[in-house]
Computed example of a mutant assay.
Amino acid sequence: MSIVLMPEKVDFRISTTDLHATYTESGGVTLRVDVQTREDMPLDQYREAEFTFSTAAELRCVTLNFFELYAGQVEGIPHTEDVLHFWESNGYHPDPGFYQVVDSPILDEKKTLFDPRNRLDLKHYLVAGYDSYVEVIASSYLIEVKNKGEC
C-alpha cells in the first residue's frame, strides 16, 4: 500500500529536529517548527514558522522519521536534480516537509465520526521533521513565518 503525499505550495522547507505542538479544544492546533526560506538557504539560517489549524479534528504526534518508517511506500513528491531552480521557478519547495495526504485511509475512516454532514471539508496534513512527524486532520490552516530575530 502506498502513501501519496501532495506537497503544500509553501515558500520554505521544514528543517527541524524539534516540532512544538499545542492543541486546545477552542483554539485548534498550533505547530511551531524551524524552516528555511530561499533567502535563508545559502546563508544556512533558520527562522520559526507557526502553523495554525483552527478547525482541527485530530492531532497525532509520532517520534519516528516518517520517511524511514514508510520507506518505499511514499509517492507524489516530485524529484528534481536542481531543487533551487525548481523552487525559484515555481515559488515553492518541491519537498517542503508539509504535505496533504491524498486519499487518506485515516481520513476516510474518521470522516463520518468528525464530520458526518461533510460541512468542514476536512483534509489530512502531514508535517515532517527530522526525527518526528505530526499528522493533523483539519479544514484549513494559516502559516506565519517569523522574520529573523523575531520572537
Rank of each mutant, 00 (worst) to 15 (best):
M1G: 08
I3S: 07
I3P: 05
P7M: 04
P7Q: 03
P7K: 03
E8H: 00
E8P: 02
E8M: 09
K9A: 09
K9H: 03
D11E: 12
T16P: 05
T16D: 04
T17H: 11
L19I: 15
H20A: 13
A21E: 11
T22Q: 14
T22N: 14
Y23H: 13
T30C: 12
R32V: 12
R32F: 02
V33G: 04
D34R: 13
V35R: 03
Q36H: 00
E39H: 15
M41G: 03
P42I: 10
P42K: 14
P42E: 05
P42V: 10
L43E: 11
L43K: 15
L43A: 15
L43T: 12
D44F: 11
Y46G: 08
E50R: 15
F51L: 06
F51H: 02
F53R: 06
F53L: 12
A56Q: 01
E58H: 14
L59K: 15
R60H: 05
R60Q: 08
C61V: 15
C61I: 14
C61L: 11
C61F: 08
L64I: 11
N65Y: 00
N65T: 05
A71S: 11
A71F: 04
G72Q: 09
Q73F: 06
V74D: 07
V74T: 10
G76I: 12
G76V: 13
H79W: 00
V83Y: 04
L84A: 15
H85T: 12
H85C: 10
W87C: 12
E88M: 13
S89P: 04
N90T: 11
N90Y: 07
G91N: 10
G91M: 10
G91A: 12
H93V: 00
P94F: 03
D95F: 02
P96N: 08
P96S: 09
F98M: 06
F98Q: 04
Y99G: 08
V101M: 10
V101F: 05
V102M: 13
S104H: 03
L107N: 01
D108P: 01
D108F: 02
E109V: 14
K111T: 08
L113V: 15
F114C: 09
D115V: 06
D115E: 01
P116W: 05
R117G: 07
R117K: 13
N118K: 15
N118L: 14
L120I: 06
D121Q: 04
D121P: 00
L122G: 10
L122H: 11
H124T: 07
Y125V: 10
L126T: 07
A128S: 15
G129K: 04
G129S: 09
D131Q: 12
S132L: 10
Y133A: 04
V134H: 08
V134A: 13
E135N: 11
V136A: 07
I137R: 07
S140L: 08
I143R: 07
I143H: 05
E144R: 14
E144L: 12
E144F: 05
E144Y: 06
K148F: 03
G149V: 07
C151R: 14
